[in-house]
Structure formats: C-alpha cells, structure tokens
Amino acid sequence: MSNPHPDTFRLSFLCPRYWGIWIGYGLLRLIGWLPYQTKFRVGKTIGRLLYRVAPSRRRLVRKNLTIAFPEKTDNDLASLVKEHFESLGISLIETSINLWGDHRKGPNNNQTGTHQHYKGLENLEKVAGQGVLLLVPHFTTLETTGLMLSKITQFRPIYRKHDNALMEYLITKSRTLTSGEGDTVKPLMNTDTRAMIKALKAGEAMMILPDQRYRAKGKVDVPFFGRPAPSNPGICKLAKLGNAKVLPVFTRRIGTDYELNILPGLENFPTGDDYQDVLRLHALYEAEIRENPAQYLWSHNRWSLKKGKDF
C-alpha cells in the first residue's frame, strides 16, 4: 500500500504517542483566539520560558552569536540571547496565526494584513512569467514570510520532510495557503528535484530555504561570518537547470508589524562556481542578519559544533 499524502489525516494520529504534540497544538489553538496584540505578549513569555528550560539550546545560541559577533561584549551577547528566545516564542504565535488567522476565512479577510507591509514588489513584477526562486533564509519570521508572499503571488514552498508523521501533517497543513488569486499553494518536498525543475521551467515561483547546515553528498564548506560552514549548493543547480531568477526575500518583525523586502533578482547567477556563488549568498544573509540579529535562527547548529566541547 502506498504511503498517504502528508496532508491526509490518519486515525493513527490519535494514538497515545502523539498526545504530547496534540496538547501543544491545542495550546496554539487557544492562543489563536486571543486579541492580536496579546498574542505577542504571550509569545515573548513562551520565549522566556524556553530560555529557562532549555540550557543546552541556550548555550548553542550563545556560542553561535559569539562566532558571528566576536566584537560584542558579554552583556550585549547575553541580552541578544534573551531577545532571540523571545523571538522564538513569537514564532510559535506566528504559526498559530498562519493556521487560524483571518486569511483562512477567505481572501477578503485582511485584519492581519493591516500589520504587514511590503518593499520591492517591483522586483517581483520584473520577473513575471519566468521561473523564480524566492530565497528565504531561516529567520524566526519564516511562517509570516510564507503567508505574506501568498498574498501577492502563487508559489510552491520547498520543505524537508519531518521525521514525525503527525508533525509532517501539521506543517503541511500550515504551509498550504490560498494565494491572492484564490489558488491553493501547496508545499513541495525538497527531494523531488524533477518536479522543482519542471515547475521552474513552466514559469512558477518557489520559496526555498537554503541556509542551514548541509552534510550530504555535494556539500561545500563556505565561510559564514568568517567560519567555514557546510552548505548546500543545490540552489545554484536549480537556478541553472530551471532557468530561474533568484530573488532574496527578508522579513523583519517590527513590534507587532512586519516588513517584507524583496531584493532585485541576482545578476549573473549562477556562475558555475558553487563556492563563489554560495559565498555571495552568505554575504547577503550576513548583511541582513547584522541589521536584525535577534530574529535569525541561532538555535540551529549551523557550524556543526560539538555538544559538550564547543557549547
């Protein structure tokens, strides 16, 4: 029997081994009913709790920030770690908004949209009709980035399959959105290269998250904040084989508002030199991270640090 599609509910999801996930999911649903401003206060509180109950993750965040910003004082780093955990907590709130926000009720419901602002829309318009790779690094605003993009263009989010079947179902459900044109936007698994290239050649857009640690065949070690980081050059190959333009997209959370900025399509990309191409992308990420350090995903082990030795 073939495996069910990830957005198909299974009765096995009701088994006791999934109850912990359902409890967390239920709490997110309760948060979804709170007033908009209150959600963010709750998110910060969740982040502060995570800071206290996850010492290993807290040490990893601190080490990553120390590598990226060696010029910062201990007090500055300590404040940045706490601010980052608050941002992580708010990202859970953003997942709740993505799952149950007013946009789910129809394209004319735009209460959340009053807090969302766009820059660089002309850059997206310039590549209309061509395959597009929307390059979205791992900031804690990721869920909101997908939601905001869905309001202005139809695209396919690229994602890595989750090891837990219920989490896979819930993530797929969260990232399946209705575009501004009323079309359904469904995620595409990152292992389906053939489908991705086909979509790009057909003039479709895809949102891809290219900046996390990559240790599979074909990786390249490219400096990230001056330290070699195992990186995936796959975006270079996708852009070439799909004849696609690459547009970096960055989203900043400013209080309870959001600003999504679409940068111009990269010229002369890819060049055929994976190392130099990824180095160019890293420079773009670093520039944005320096402007918005607390909202980058420092809780990820980007440099393959060893627990107990490095943090």
Results as ranks from 00 to 15, higher is better:
S12K: 12
T141R: 06
L135A: 08
L11Y: 12
E94S: 13
P248G: 01
W100Y: 02
I46S: 05
G120K: 02
Y25F: 11
Y285W: 13
S304G: 06
K245E: 09
L11W: 13
A202M: 08
L60A: 06
S79F: 09
I254W: 12
R59T: 10
T172G: 15
F13V: 05
M207G: 15
K307Q: 15
F85D: 04
T184L: 11
N123V: 03
T178E: 07
T271Y: 07
L188W: 01
A283E: 15
K201I: 01
T112V: 15
N110R: 14
T145M: 02
P55T: 00
E168I: 07
Y258P: 10
N292Q: 12
N109H: 14
G226D: 10
K44T: 10
Y25D: 06
L260G: 02
R160P: 06
Y51M: 15
T45K: 14
H300T: 09
V61M: 07
A283N: 10
T193G: 11
P228V: 06
N232S: 00
V220S: 02
R175K: 03
V185I: 06
L279Q: 11
H282L: 03
T141V: 13
W33P: 06
P264G: 05
Y51L: 15
F311D: 08
L121M: 02
R52C: 13
G120N: 10
V249K: 01
W22K: 15
P270A: 04
T256S: 12
F311V: 11
K63I: 04
K237P: 14
N109M: 13
T153F: 04
P270S: 00
K44H: 02
L65S: 04
S299H: 12
Y36N: 03
E291A: 15
R227I: 04
I23R: 08
L80E: 06
E143D: 12
S299T: 13
G101Q: 02
T172M: 09
L11N: 12
R215M: 08
V136Y: 02
G26Q: 07
W303L: 05
L27G: 01
D211F: 03
P230Y: 00
V249E: 06
M206T: 06
L121D: 06
P70W: 03
H300Q: 11
L147K: 07
L60R: 03
Y285G: 14
F13M: 06
K198R: 11
I46G: 10
N110M: 01
P293Q: 03
H300R: 05
G89N: 02
P230S: 01
N301A: 05
Y51P: 12
H162T: 14
S2V: 12
L200V: 08
N98T: 15
G24E: 09
F269D: 05
K151P: 04
G131W: 02
M196W: 05
E168D: 05
S299K: 08
E259D: 13
R29Y: 13
L170A: 04
D273C: 09
E286W: 07
A287N: 11
N268I: 07
R175D: 03
I46A: 15
K119E: 14
I262A: 06
Y36E: 01
